[in-house]
C-alpha cells in the first residue's frame, strides 16, 4: 500500500474523472431515448415516453433481437461442447503440438475482426459455395466463442488438479461415471462463466457478423448499424441502445453471483 496523502488525492480525482468520461456517454444514450427531438442537440427540448412505445412495436428490431438470441444460444452450445473437449484434452498430457492447439483456439479472437470476417466470408462463398445466412453466422460465432469456454475450463482443471478423479477411478468408476459424478460438477460454474462470456460475445458481435450474415439475416447489432444513419429511425435506435445499456448490467450481476458460487462450489467438493 502506498501511503502518500497528496498522491492518493490526485489519483482519486483522476479515477473519478476517467469514470465520469466512461459513464457520461452511456448516460447520454439513456437520456436521448426520452428525447422529443430526432437529433442529438443538447440539452433536449423535452422528454417523452413516446419512442419507447414506438420501439416496442418495431417488428424489425424485435425480429433482429430474436435472431441474435437464437444465434447466441446455438453458438454458445457448440462452444461449450468443443471448448470443454479441448480443455479436457489439454490437461496434464504433454504432447507435441500442445501450444499449437491453444494458439489455434485463441487465433479467431486474437486476429483483427476483419481478418476473421473476410476469411470466413471467402471460405463460405468462394470455397464452399454456401449461401450466407443464419447457419453461417452460427458457425462464425461458435468459432470465436470456443476460446472463452476453453480458458475457463482449463483454468478450473488446473486449479483443482487430478486427485478427485483419480480417487473416483480407484474406487472403480469408469471414465463416463467419473465425468458425470466428479468432473462435470467440478466444472459446472466454470462452464456457466465461460458460457455467459460466449453468449455475451456472440450477442454483441458485429464485425465478423457483417461479413457472414448475408443480405437476408439481421442480428440486433446489424439492425442497429443499418438504422443508425436513417434520421427517421434514430429515436427507435436510441431506445434499443438504452435497453442494451440496461441489459448489460445483467451479466455483471450474474458474474457476481457466480463468483460467490465458485467459492461454495469448491468448498462443497472438499
Amino acid at each position: 500500500m502506498i501511503v502518500d496523502g497528496r498522491l492518493k488525492a490526485v489519483l482519486r480525482v483522476l479515477t473519478g474523472l476517467v469514470l465520469l468520461v466512461v459513464y457520461v456517454p452511456l448516460a447520454l444514450v439513456m437520456v436521448n431515448s426520452f428525447n422529443v427531438d430526432r437529433t442529438f442537440t443538447w440539452p433536449p427540448s423535452g422528454l417523452t415516453f413516446h419512442w419507447w412505445n414506438v420501439a416496442a412495436h418495431s417488428s424489425g428490431a424485435r425480429h433482429a433481437l430474436l435472431v441474435s438470441i437464437e444465434v447466441a444460444i446455438l453458438a454458445t452450445a457448440i462452444a461449450l461442447v468443443l471448448g470443454t473437449l479441448a480443455g479436457l484434452a489439454l490437461r496434464r498430457t504433454r504432447f507435441f503440438g500442445r501450444n499449437v492447439v491453444s494458439l489455434l483456439i485463441i487465433l479467431p479472437i486474437a486476429l483483427p475482426g476483419i481478418v476473421t470476417g473476410i476469411a470466413l466470408n471467402n471460405a463460405f462463398r468462394t470455397m464452399l459455395g454456401l449461401q450466407l445466412g443464419f447457419f453461417t453466422i452460427v458457425v462464425a460465432h461458435a468459432t470465436f466463442c470456443i476460446v472463452t469456454v476453453f480458458n475457463n475450463v482449463q483454468a478450473r482443471l488446473q486449479r483443482l488438479g487430478p486427485s478427485f478423479e483419480q480417487a473416483s477411478a480407484d474406487l472403480g468408476a469408469g471414465a463416463f461415471t467419473t465425468f458425470r459424478l466428479i468432473t462435470f460438477p467440478m466444472l459446472r460454474s466454470a462452464l456457466l462463466a465461460g458460457g455467459l462470456l460466449a453468449f455475451g460475445l456472440s450477442f454483441d458481435e458485429i464485425v465478423v457478423t457483417t461479413f457472414t450474415a448475408g443480405p437476408q439475416e439481421q442480428t440486433l447489432p446489424i439492425w442497429i448499424f443499418q438504422n443508425l444513419f436513417r434520421p427517421n429511425q434514430a429515436p427507435i435506435v436510441n431506445v434499443v441502445a438504452a435497453v442494451l445499456v440496461l441489459v448489460s448490467t445483467v451479466p455483471i450481476y450474474l458474474a457476481q453471483r457466480l463468483s460467490g458460487d465458485v467459492v461454495s462450489g469448491a468448498s462443497g467438493a472438499h
Binding site: L26, P221, V245
Partner: peptide
C-alpha cells in the same frame, strides 16, 4: 461498460 454493447 465492457458488457455494454460495442455498437451502443
Amino acid at each position: 461498460p465492457l458488457w455494454a454493447s460495442y455498437l451502443v
